[in-house]
Computed example of a mutant assay.
Amino acid sequence: MTSLTSRRALRDPQSSRLRSGWLARWVPRTAVLVALASATIAVPLADTASSQTDAFAAAGPVGYPSAVDVLSSAQPTSTPTSLLAAVRGATLVSDTSSRSFERNPLPGCDGEAREAGSNGQVPASDLCTLWDGRQMLRGDAAVALAELNKNFNAAFGRDMCITDTYRTLSEQRRVAATKPGLAATPGTSNHGWGLAIDLCTSENRLTSVMSWLADNGPTYGWDNPDWARRGGSGAYEPWHWEYVPGTTALGTNY
């Protein structure tokens, strides 16, 4: 009986009208609920994906700068050798260090070691003038010393103080006469080749300066020779420094 009644109810026009009304009310409501649910789920997911993308773009690969960092950076693209730390015991010559970068630490000097005529008679055209506008050295020695001086200036806020560099033969004779026992025999001094310097007394008295030079000088080929050190074979001259690559090539690295 219940089954027959149900079939008749379904065929009954009044029942059909009731069912249609029910559908008319709930289908729109269901659509609204589905839309709200989709928005509730999709929007956070989209925000999460967007935030993750933004975070990755901002951070970039681990250990590397982002494009924003690179484009907004004011840092130079290369590091001058004059700002690189020196390494104790290194024997890097100026030719290698200076030519690695397209710049000249001593404007007007090409850094070339031209074949000299004789000791104390080197043409001025074969020498380079240092930063003080007075002292002169052979090209390669001058560039190497200029590189060293850039480091020195960065460390102490001033240039190295130097009293003597290249000496003519007549100047060697004068020094030998006024400083017997200290000056080399005229015509044999490395000053006469433009490969030696004498530091100011003010530099020698500063332990910090002499220690710094001992650590950094050899990096650019400059050193206080063994014979001039305390207990060496010659007079104690901590102020006397030579360009080792040059003296070694000439066989005057006594």
Rank of each mutant, 00 (worst) to 15 (best):
T81V: 14
T129Q: 04
V122N: 03
R174L: 02
C109R: 05
V70I: 14
V87H: 07
A59E: 05
S78F: 14
S100I: 00
L195C: 07
N119P: 01
E115T: 07
L182Q: 11
T188L: 09
Y64F: 03
C128V: 01
H191S: 12
Y166R: 08
D126R: 01
V93W: 07
A144F: 12
P80E: 12
T201C: 01
I162Y: 11
P186N: 12
Q172R: 01
A116Q: 01
L169H: 00
T79R: 12
T185D: 04
S78Q: 14
V70F: 04
T201L: 03
S78R: 12
P180I: 05
I197S: 07
T91I: 01
D132W: 10
G192H: 03
S98M: 13
P61W: 00
G133K: 11
Q75P: 03
G139N: 10
A59C: 03
R134V: 05
Q121K: 06
P105I: 07
A67S: 09
F101R: 07
K179Y: 04
G192P: 06
D164A: 13
A142F: 02
T79V: 12
F156V: 03
C128K: 05
Q135P: 01
C200H: 11
I197V: 15
P76H: 08
Y64H: 02
L84E: 15
K179C: 00
S66P: 06
T96C: 05
P186M: 14
T79P: 06
A90T: 06
A141S: 12
P123F: 07
S72M: 11
V122I: 10
T168N: 08
D140H: 10
I197P: 04
A142K: 03
A113N: 04
N104R: 02
A155R: 15
